[in-house]
Design a protein around this nucleic acid. Sequence first.
DNA 1: AGTGCGACCCGAACGC
DNA 2: TGCGTTCGGGTCGCAC
Length: 272
Amino acid sequence: MPEKPEVITVSKTLEKIIIGKTIKKVDVYWDNIIIGDKDEFKKSLVGERIESITTRGKWIVIFLTTKALICHLRMEGKFFFRDPSIPKEKHEHVIITFIDNTDMRFNDVRKFGKMACLPKEEVYNLKPLSDLGLEYYDKSLTPSYLLEALRKKKLPIKTALLDQSIITGIGNIYDDEILFASHINPLRKADSINIDEADAIIKNTKIILDKAVTMGGTTIKSFTSAEGVHGLFQNELSVHGKKDGTCPNCGEKLIVTKVGGRGTYYCPKCQK
DNA sequence: AGTGCGACCCGAACGC
DNA sequence: TGCGTTCGGGTCGCAC
């Protein structure tokens, strides 16, 4: 599923393709993708030119002339580029056509993805971006910041790391990888984490997510995040997804369980 | 305020 | 083989 590295990868891909293009027309075929009023969304985008693209948490933020278009891929959202003469396919729910007669199609089998059009200057101060915590590369992400955020949490550390208001961008897969690299059991209560462990979590998050970004993200199942985007990080995963696998450290059989309703993989020997 | 859970979706995997 | 059922995943909104 797209987590921060995949979102960064898609953002870079979009940058190469759509910067400088002006929106001619927007078609929405599944209303729930759009946060807010659909007709207002369409009207606000027409005539806007794409200036720059970045990410905030797992959101792609596309800055336009006066607006910001934000997109969340959720489970399987992806962007395809087609000639506008090609008929809409089954899972294409939003089609943005540019004045140069090209288009960008939001394809999402699960229909879980989200898009919103917000005023450019305020986009970081409005929901949903205003609720997000620190990026993993933010200099303010220190062991004491993390410790303070975890101090009042009784949930498992695995669940706390998925809380986007603390560190934003970690999803279910990298969560398992980060805790494995940090030798921390995912079931440990968040408020039991000490300063050295908080330090290890932050350092390993940086190492793992940076490496995943370098490798173009993780491609699992048939998932691709955008046209021609295939990550390679799936070959680097130590624990997540290895159902019958063994620990790459000690050879112990990995535990496959659920934590906070999420599929979780860990080594009972290496992660205390 | 923190926590837990249903809802949103539908293809794949599973059970009979 | 073919059918029906269950599952999973990120986030929001609601109830406790």
